[in-house]
Design a protein around this nucleic acid. Structure first.
Length: 232
DNA sequence: CGCCAGGGCCTCA
DNA sequence: TGAGGCCATGGC
């Protein structure tokens, strides 16, 4: 067991509190927002929006994704079926702020086709590894995107490993520079309690911490995990 | 202005 | 199987 992992993550979790991930746009709102309730129930649209958002945020600042999601909602792009009906040029224009828009258009279309062939109820019944396999078969959905969808849309416990997670674990000397995605994921999952809301908020807290403190050029002064970090 | 952002695919050894 | 190139916008 690696006690450090849970100590570090739970310290971040405690500092930032419940962050209400994944942000989504409630029926009566225009922009995605974070959710105060720990058992907030996503509407069908919000589930779709999260899956789309997971693609749109690939290597992209969330603030740019918000613009794209706002535009898509205005376009009444409210379901996979609708998205496939809408003209591609309009979708392209809508998602332009999120960058890589040609690739992302194609990725979203493949995802839509998948979601039309497989409805939520059937997918929910699958175990995590089968669901993951199916998602990874979709062009444009890699491990992090698949795991984000599994955790935040399907509410199943799988830990999302992103560039920020790697950065923190590297700086805390828990992993070395190049370690395989699934090795890191399993290492983390072995060392923290297997609870969906914990997985969600640990990941959210990692992102939050890296956005404002553990940046590439780190701001270490008020960092609460500096005692674990080789930079200090 | 250059750097960076909640990755993934393709190519080529 | 891994490293490197490519995709692209907007905030700082």
């Amino acid at each position: 067991m690696n006690e450090k992992i849970n100590k570090i993550f739970s310290a971040l979790d405690k500092k930032y509190g419940w962050l209400g991930w994944w942000p989504s746009t409630p029926p009566d709102k225009e922009y995605p927002e974070y959710h105060k309730s720990k058992n907030y129930k996503y509407s069908e649209y919000e589930k779709f929006e999260i899956a789309i958002g997971a693609i749109l945020t690939q290597n992209t600042a969330w603030s740019n994704v918000v613009k794209a999601l706002y535009n898509l909602k205005k376009l009444k792009c409210s379901s996979p079926e609708k998205m496939l009906e809408i003209e591609e040029t309009k979708i392209l224009e809508a998602i332009k702020p999120s960058g890589y828009y040609n690739q992302k258009l194609k990725k979203m279309r493949y995802l839509c086709e998948f979601l039309i062939k497989n409805n939520w109820r059937d997918l929910e019944k699958l175990d995590i590894s089968e669901l993951r396999k199916r998602l990874l078969d979709i062009w444009g959905i890699g491990k992090e995107t698949a795991d984000s969808i599994i955790l935040y849309v399907f509410n199943k416990p799988i830990f999302v490993v992103d560039a920020y997670t790697r950065r923190i674990l590297q700086r805390c000397e828990i992993i070395d520079a190049k370690k395989d995605y699934d090795e890191i994921r399993i290492l983390i999952e072995k060392n923290i309690p297997k609870k969906v809301n914990l997985y969600k908020n640990y990941h959210a807290a990692i992102v939050e911490h890296c956005k404002y403190n553990c940046k590439i050029k780190p701001l270490c002064e008020h960092c609460i995990i500096k005692n674990y970090c080789k930079l200090n």
